[in-house]
Amino acid sequence: MINLLRAEWIKLRTVRMNWVLGNIAIVFPLVVTLLTAYFRGDDTGFNGLNTQDLVSTLTGTTVVCSLLCGVIAAAAITSEFGFGTIRPTFAATPRRLRVLVAKGVVTLLTTTAIGATVIAIGWFGGSSIARSRGASIELSTVDTAVPAMVGAIVLVAVMSLAGYGLGLLMRSTPAAVATLIVWPLIAEGLIGGLLGLITGKKNLSSWMPFQAGLRMVFVDRFAEGPSRLAGGAVFAGVALLLVALGSLAVSRRDA
């Protein structure tokens, strides 16, 4: 398995697009968070920055990071089918599940590291900048701050799992990436709203996979819908199901 992990790591890091997406995934949330800390850090009035605002900005922008990590994970497998490299891959390792596990592990660890980097630099950099500008930033004052930041890292990991699962099932980069973007941003809202109309229950959309997963990154507490843990579990369960079904399909189909 170590050999396969090494092989998949070489594959992942030797494609320029992964570096481009990975860098954007790190830079975008950091730029927004650090600029927010700088420009709102010296405002002591109504718009003044507090700990909750800083953490919300950081975890909120990490959602974009998670989407990009999902794209990296999806492309890690769809590009194999697109360029035909899945055939030399399986010709070098006929036990397909071992390849898929190795690829999944390498992708998951890489994207989780990206998420952790964003949160670590975002929090320590953002809080330092805001404090230097006069804002009062203390982690201990908001009890949901740490869970939200850990949740943001988990969201990145789960999103990459979902992307990987979609890639395994669809085999096509455009199809998998489109689904990955359209589903959370458009489809869930529409389907949740429609189900709400039919059943008369207003909060159904908050149980949709991505919306449920988003609960992990929120600093606010919710009176209705899934808790942080339950929401994360729903999204992770769906992502794992996608990976399981996709792996099964790839194992059985012609390569």
């Binding site: 594959k11 030797t14 390792t93």
Partner: peptide, 18 residues
């Protein structure tokens, strides 16, 4: 059956590593 964005050496490196 080669990723066009990867160098020839890196293509062989992942194959060898596997």
């Amino acid at each position: 059956y080669v990723h066009p964005g990867r160098s020839g050496r890196n293509h062989l490196r992942w194959l060898a590593a596997s």
